[in-house]
């Protein structure tokens, strides 16, 4: 597998280009259809409120996909990604106001391993609040 970024060029502390991901209700409907996750908390406001949520919330997996995209954009070949994990700490609330929500994603190289892999530590925020914890991706670089 090839990658655009070479292991030798990467330093711990290197910041990845950040990524802003707008999310509207239509984004979630499209994601529900593509992923097969039709849990109504992601598209039915009445249902979401009934089960104690403030409003419709984004699929956690959509946020994780965006966090992973930050890393694969940087690497070039997404096949270089060997491991990724997140903890979903706060919901991304998506109001039906024509604006929706904005997920702001950034990342920094947290470790360089002798096997040619690099760990990226990812931060995802919505309205200034962290929505993922322990978000990391491991990529194997050329």
């Amino acid at each position: 597998m090839s990658s655009v970024i070479a292991w030798s060029e990467v330093e711990v502390g290197t910041e990845l280009p950040s990524l802003n991901v707008p999310v509207q209700r239509a984004t979630l409907v499209r994601y529900a259809g593509a992923s097969g996750d039709f849990n109504p908390i992601h598209w039915n406001q009445d249902f979401a409120v009934e089960v104690g949520l403030p409003d419709v919330i984004a699929h956690g997996m959509f946020t994780m996909a965006s966090a992973t995209r930050l890393v694969t954009n940087w690497v070039g070949d997404p096949g270089a990604l060997v491991d990724c994990g997140v903890r979903f700490t706060r919901p991304v609330v998506v109001p039906n106001d024509g604006v929706g929500a904005l997920i702001e994603i950034s990342g920094v190289v947290g470790a360089k391993n002798e096997d040619g892999s690099v760990r990226v530590d990812i931060t995802a925020k919505c309205e200034g609040v962290t929505v993922l914890a322990k978000a990391t991706a491991l990529v194997r670089l050329a």
């Binding site: 597998m1 991901v21 984004t27 994601y31 959509f62 996909a65 992973t68 694969t72 070949d77």
Partner: peptide, 30 residues
């Protein structure tokens, strides 16, 4: 890939994926 807003050619274009050494288009990790 479109639903997650990711236009990486490796997900969309078989030739681009093959140029990276993959058999065909590959899927996003998630």
């Amino acid at each position: 890939a479109t639903a997650i807003g990711d236009d990486n050619p490796a997900y969309h274009d078989s030739a681009a994926a093959q140029a990276l050494g993959h058999r065909d288009v590959i899927a996003p990790a998630t």
